[in-house]
Simulated assay, not measured.
Amino acid sequence: MSGATKIDDVYSAIEEGARLLDVSCSRDDVWPILTAYEGALAQAVLVLSMASGENHTGELDYTITVPLGEPDPYALALSKGFTAATDHPVGSLLSDIRERCPVRGYAVDCGVTGGFKKTYAFFPLDDLQGLAKLAAIPSMPRSLAENSEAFARHGLGDNVTMVGIDYQHRTMNVYLGKFGPECLEPKTVVSMLEEIGLPEPSEQMLEFIRKAFSIYITINWDSPKVDRICFAVITQDAMELPSRIDPEIAHFAKSAPHAYDGDRILVYGSTVAPGGEYYKLGSYYQMPPDTFKLLQTHDAIQDK
């Protein structure tokens, strides 16, 4: 569009993504957040995300990476009134992590209907963090310590690539990566899920999990249990398993806007929770060249 700014472009993409999901998108809700993080937009990785299932529809999330040189993403959200200050440990976790661990960058996660939701902290890929080290952070949910040995027994004790902090739900995510294929064998996955108190996935999900490049868990401050676990698969195939079994995911996978040449880069998440299993989809809208090169290390991403 003539005279368009980066915010215009990003907002248009978010609006288009919301329309694909029949989700109401208000400029008054989204524009202030884009303006607050405007300094990061030009070089940010931008992802549009949705989830399937009756309890997860009606929302489009958008994720924006924020480099170290920009203002603290949580402090900025507080100053803009996107989230309320709190005495709960969720409010101090990001700063506590930053004081004790190397951080290479951040991200924020927001919804077109839910507003500001999360911050993320990324660790250097050559200095992944251990679960035991993170569990010792004072504001960390104690459920991480309760379950860290179970993950370590399955080869995932020193594989933390990033964390996510959800201020609305007072939960957090711990992301595990750079693990061997043996960690994704069905017997290993079933054993690990049984140990942390989650149900066995379906056969089709276990087969899909074999392709995962990242595993992340959701925990909270009120329970010693793992809330849920997600296995993420990166691909350029819009008709991967979740799309074949869920028309809404298929529609979004084939139609989500993207601002780079070639096929969309997609991340499917197969999620196991106490109440059953469901799928998520993240579609990369914007991707700086360095990020694309990094993603090309995955066999599913081709240079097209």
Rank of each mutant, 00 (worst) to 15 (best):
S243M: 03
L184V: 07
C183L: 08
I245F: 07
H154I: 07
S148Q: 15
G197K: 07
R153T: 08
P141H: 08
A152H: 13
T235A: 06
R210K: 15
P242T: 02
Q236Y: 10
R142Y: 04
D158F: 03
C230Q: 04
E149I: 06
G155L: 04
E203P: 01
D246F: 06
Y175A: 00
M192V: 13
G180R: 04
I245K: 10
V233F: 04
F252D: 04
P224A: 12
R153C: 10
N173Q: 09
S148N: 12
R142K: 14
F179R: 02
A250L: 10
P201F: 09
K211T: 03
P257G: 05
R153I: 03
R228F: 12
V189M: 13
N220W: 00
R210C: 08
D227G: 00
A253Q: 06
L144R: 09
I219Y: 07
P141M: 04
L193Y: 13
A232L: 05
A238S: 15
I249M: 11
S202N: 06
Q204P: 07
E240Y: 10
S214F: 08
P247Y: 05
P199I: 11
F151Y: 15
H251I: 08
L176E: 02
Y167E: 05
E185T: 05
L241P: 03
H251Q: 12
P141N: 07
I217R: 00
K225P: 01
M162C: 08
L193M: 13
A150M: 08
R142H: 10
W221G: 03
